[in-house]
Design a protein around this nucleic acid. Structure first.
Lengths: 349, 349
DNA sequence: CGATTGAAGTTAAACGTTTGCATCACCGTA
DNA sequence: TACGGTGATGCAAACGTTTAACTTCAATCG
């Protein structure tokens, strides 16, 4: 590896002169022609500053730590990480990711690992929108929660979450505009899903806005967001005599379950049953037949925001209080929504 | 942050004494009682070594770089990263991941970023088993290819790949043992998939071992490993008059397509058609109805191996030549395989 | 004409470690 | 008494940077 010393020796000046020039601080301190020589030699030799050394001196490692307990467990995680990493890189920051592999990091080992590397900011990422407990961090270090919010709302952390309510509203409205009146909502029962309440609010708001009264019988809770749990609710809800003509599902997985049960019952999607999911999960939403109309979770955008926000704070460009934002969840139209079948609910066999 | 100097001041010894003790090098050089005092104070103050400083001095950053062009793009990536990161952590190494976000890193910017951070070893990860071009790296730096192999086979790099042939053999044999004789294989046509050839070899070997002659009409190529491409081949192959009773698919996605077309044609899975996939893709294989019997790609294990191998090389524990390994791809049995229906191929409507 | 200014650098200290070498007290031996 | 050996400890240099403070020299100014 080439060091400042090497360049200095080649050019015949002192190390500091080289440092000054290469950091664009040589203006008026180093003669232009000497500066040019230095730059040339640096180029020729392929100089790249040793960031360990620089970090040691300046205490600015240009590194952001990302802590997560689930990089592996969930497919969208990659999108968030990718977004964060790429936008960090745009600002010449490096993102270092530590995954506690599912173990709640109670003793703070993971955070310590990161602090030892002199990270300048910390991003806490979750596998789904929920409340998180923040680890202990040095007073001045920016902390950003990615896809979640601090349980202690007074904590000095920024956060970004999806606009769950907006997404649910858009989905439900889409169904209403297609002509549906009996629209079911298959939610999840687990309280840890913050989205649970928010999506329901969006669903209800959309109905109200269209002057429809929600039918409690059409709102059901799956035990979790899985396909199997979706099937259970689908069987209950689709075999009633006045079944809904459309269903909005908490997850694409659950929607998948509704596809399967619809098949079983001889209901065609979308002719006899319109379905909308949530997540826009790769390899599912677009693989289903017909393609699943769904609401996209903006994982990449959230990752991007988190990294940018962390950097903005580092630079003192952010307001003093915590800032938070909601990312839009756009509706992705595929083929699972159609006007309700006037014929009514009689199954085609 | 607490430094050696702080501890030295508290105890009333020199910095070097503290350093020696804390690195277990004090034996016979520092009196035991003093050593104990040092350790105590270090604990109390919550000392953690500054790894930048240490790395600068020792030139050992205890960091491994992982370069990939697709963390985001593929769901399994997380498994590989998780495996690599966790096993690196076990050896007190940190994994830093740089994703070029799909841009082939021609100028080596990404590698440079990593080298600037003084990484000690480099892992090159791919999104699917294929040949990769290795970037320029310092002569002595260990390089490990994860889920792929160097195009230049004489390069000084280790690599780990899945045992594609073994997995395909197991899958095909499983179908044979269930009683199937007409077993189709839906491959992909894109040559970049190294697995293409290997899985086909496993399929054919299994048939030969059972003294079955492969029927060329039963081997088809999908244009890519997607569900849509799978459907195209499924329609061709399942509507023939003497259709196969079982099919082994290159991917779970393709298998998904076969489920869909089987439905369309009134064929029941597994009664009328047995299906085996490849990948064990989360949220698909276990969501299908019936669950998809498939071959698991050992992403996590490969990640683990890559990190361990890199570290072993660093420590000089590896043989001098390149080493490579194949990870077993176990068959995961769910519900999509049954004995062939003696009734024959007549569709049930 | 002596003092001031400005350009063009250089010196040296510092960041937190690690580590070879020097120091020093003490002991046993010749 | 002198000497080598040991055990305990401190000193100081080095890793590659950054940066405040300094030097030197020539030119300008009142």
């Amino acid at each position: 590896m080439v060091t400042l010393k090497d360049i200095a020796a080649h050019v015949g000046v002192s190390i500091s002169a080289v440092s000054l020039v290469l950091n664009e601080r040589g203006e008026g301190r180093v003669r232009p022609d000497v500066a040019a020589r230095i730059r040339n030699v640096a180029d020729e030799l392929g100089y790249a500053p040793n960031l360990l050394a620089r970090g040691l001196k300046t205490n600015q490692s240009h590194t952001i730590g990302l802590l997560s307990d689930q990089v592996a467990s969930v497919p969208f995680a990659g999108q968030m990480l990718g977004g964060a990493q790429v936008s960090a890189a745009e600002e010449e920051f490096l993102l270092i990711v530590v995954d506690t592999a599912g173990n709640r990091d109670l003793d703070g080992t993971a955070v310590k690992t990161l602090l030892q590397r002199n990270i300048e900011a910390l991003i806490i990422a979750t596998d789904f929108h929920r409340e998180v407990d923040l680890p202990m961090t040095p007073r001045a270090m920016p902390v950003v929660v990615l896809d979640g919010l601090p349980r202690d709302r007074s904590a000095a952390a920024d956060w970004v979450i999806p606009d769950e309510t907006g997404g649910a509203y858009a989905a439900t409205t889409h169904l209403i505009l297609a002509g549906h009146r009996r629209i079911a909502f298959c939610n999840v029962e687990d309280e840890r899903f913050v989205a649970r309440t928010l999506r329901r609010a969006g669903y209800e708001a959309a109905l109200s806005a269209a002057e429809l009264t929600p039918d409690p019988a059409l709102i059901v809770d799956a035990s979790d967001p899985s396909t199997a749990a979706g099937r259970v609710q689908a069987r209950r809800i689709l075999s009633t005599h006045d079944r809904p003509t459309a269903v909005f599902c908490f997850s694409d997985q659950i929607a998948f379950g509704f596809y399967q049960v619809a098949q079983e019952l001889g209901l065609r999607v979308p002719d006899d049953l319109s379905i909308i999911g949530f997540d826009d999960q790769p390899f599912i939403a677009d693989s289903l037949l017909p393609g699943l109309t769904t609401v996209r979770l903006p994982h990449r955008d959230m990752g991007t925001w988190a990294a940018r926000q962390a950097i903005a704070r580092l630079r003192g460009e952010a307001p003093s209080g915590p800032v938070s934002t909601q990312m839009a969840c756009p509706l992705v139209e595929r083929g699972s929504v159609a006007p309700p079948n006037p014929e009514g609910g009689s199954p085609h066999i």
